[in-house]
Design a protein around this nucleic acid. Structure first.
Lengths: 146, 146
DNA sequence: TTCCTTGCAAACGATTTGCATTGGA
DNA sequence: TCCAATGCAAATCGTTTGCAAGGAA
């Protein structure tokens, strides 16, 4: 999923908060941009060559989350994975392996997404909720675990 | 959500695995049966009066999960919440507060659930996945946080 | 007696924090 | 220069485990 103006957009967004777009932060954004799904701190640590200390990585993730560059995903026991925020990647869903916990992105057509939205509205209406967004995850066994 | 034959059903299910349905286990099942949504070990500990040691509670949760009496829910940073398995409560969805992380059950009509299933099938088909189930969570701010 | 179950304390893995150092505007 | 960002080590939090004691069949 190539995002042409990614660095520019992120830098601009960070500048708003007076936050610097440093080498370490660029590396995380890069790693997430090329990942096939949400990644945990440990996974990013591997992806990135393991020289950055974990504590710095966690700090970077916190900063990026606060600036709304990345979003947390809680789909596995006791660990948080991150992905680029939807204003960057566009709205999407996840395929989650019930065996190993791996998570993969699913992009859906606008047409289908409209149907999802309509359903969420319908359900929320009946329960008198005020939805701001939704999460749809499809569970199954991934290639490796099948 | 009153479940008339709950204790009987659970006991029977546990006996299959040669697992005893002890006082502590009954208490957890009871607490979950009356909860409005998934509960974490710490939350259950409070719900139950706090005299059971946490380690026992965790062990109970492990046993009940292995016997498929309860199911884990990962919707919050670094903590697992549990709810009664869907063969007991019926399939349902969740309303998740984006502010405080509280989770509440949403029961939907069969009619709507059919639509959800159809959508999941449609999406999975396009991605050549083999779905065994799905999770739909509606996000918003709960009464308290609004 | 024979296992399953529980309690307590220590161990663990993911994440956070204090503090001194480094680095960029 | 000056404050944000980083590295390292220690602390914290949710959860798990070893081991000895308690209980039910």
């Amino acid at each position: 999923m190539p995002i042409p103006s990614l660095d520019r957009d992120v830098e601009q967004r960070l500048r708003r908060d007076d936050v610097r777009y440093t080498r370490g932060r660029r590396a995380v954004v890069q790693a997430l941009a090329t990942a096939a799904g949400p990644r945990s701190a440990a996974e990013l640590h591997q992806d990135m060559g393991s020289d950055v200390p974990l504590s710095s990585l966690y700090r970077t993730l916190t900063v990026l989350e606060e600036a709304n560059i990345i979003s947390p995903h809680f789909g596995a026991r006791g660990l948080t994975r991150y992905e680029l925020a939807e204003w960057i990647t566009g709205h999407h869903h996840h395929y989650v392996c019930i065996e190993c916990g791996a998570v993969e992105d699913i992009d859906v057509s606008e047409e289908i997404e409209h149907k999802v939205d309509a359903l969420v509205e319908e359900i929320s209406g009946m329960a008198s909720f005020n939805p701001t967004s939704h999460v749809l995850e499809i569970e199954g066994r991934c290639r490796r675990c099948r």
